[in-house]
């Protein structure tokens, strides 16, 4: 990261800290207008440094390997597809996946925040799904928190020498689930229960999201594994260039 980039990062972090202290809250596709104003601003501010870091990270990846842009575009498209498919779940309601695990594993979590926010803006503006006022909170849960967990789990599995495909599966599945946990928590912060406060409220929201999301998270894990397998076969030079696959098969 160059000196100029570093100073921009510092500014952004300071900005996030200033505004982020305002109590905040509502996550994964929290509907338009459902978050109090203070929370909207706070979550938005928290996202800014991540987005800037993501921008620099993508810039750096592309400067080093121009060709990686194909795989990057595919990761972005993967988010587009998965987050548009509403799938019925065991609880009798529908939900959709996030698709952010793939990009997080391949390009690192901050790069995905950019891919994620593109999708969220598309859905907020055209589909009235999620919303512009809740964009910050939704970005935080889907494009920041989830990918960071995916990335962390993938790295952990690698350190523990878990089979690579199993690691990809776990990372994508848990990242997806965590997105919804963050959403529940963001909602709970904004709407604490009268009895039990934020904690009790978080449990209630989790009760709505978690059982619905569990099978979908598994689907996301499987699909991510499948696409990584395919990419390993056909895009080996790119994967090597971005440091995903080191050894020659």
């Amino acid at each position: 990261m160059s000196k100029k980039e570093k100073s921009i990062m510092k500014l952004a972090t300071a900005f996030a800290l200033t505004f982020g202290i305002v109590p905040s809250a509502f996550a994964m596709h929290i509907m338009e207008g459902y978050l109090p104003v203070g929370y909207c601003i706070a979550w938005g501010a928290v996202c800014v440094p991540f987005l800037i870091a993501g921008f620099f990270s993508i810039q750096k990846t592309l400067r080093e390997n121009r060709k990686a842009i194909t795989v990057l575009a595919m990761s972005g498209a993967f988010v587009f597809v998965l987050s548009s498919l509403k799938i019925p779940s065991v609880t009798g309601s529908c939900s959709h996946m996030t698709g952010t695990g793939l990009g997080a594993i391949l390009f690192g979590p901050s790069a995905v925040s950019i891919l994620g926010i593109i999708v969220l803006i598309f859905q907020a503006v055209l589909l009235a799904h999620g919303g512009l006022t809740t964009l910050g909170a939704n970005t935080f849960s889907m494009a920041i928190a989830g990918p960071f967990v995916s990335f962390g789990i993938y790295r952990l599995c690698k350190a523990l020498k878990v089979n690579k495909m199993a690691a990809v599966f776990l990372a994508a599945t848990l990242g997806d689930l965590f997105t919804y946990c963050v959403t529940s928590f963001q909602l709970a912060l904004a709407y604490p229960s009268e009895i039990g406060g934020v904690g009790a409220s978080a449990v209630k929201f989790l009760g709505v999201f978690a059982p619905t999301q569990l099978p979908l998270a598994v689907i996301e894990g499987i699909l991510t594994t499948v696409i990584v397998m395919t990419l390993e076969t056909y895009a080996l030079p790119e994967l090597k260039a971005i440091g995903f696959t080191r050894e020659v098969k």
Binding site: M31, S93, C94, S95, K204, V208, F209, Q213
Partner: peptide, 18 residues
């Protein structure tokens, strides 16, 4: 089953809590 969105289920929960 209705298969409504879980986002909507979220807003019902808000109503319940408030």
């Amino acid at each position: 089953a209705e298969f409504g969105g879980s986002d909507d289920a979220g807003s019902q929960m808000i109503t319940e809590i408030r």
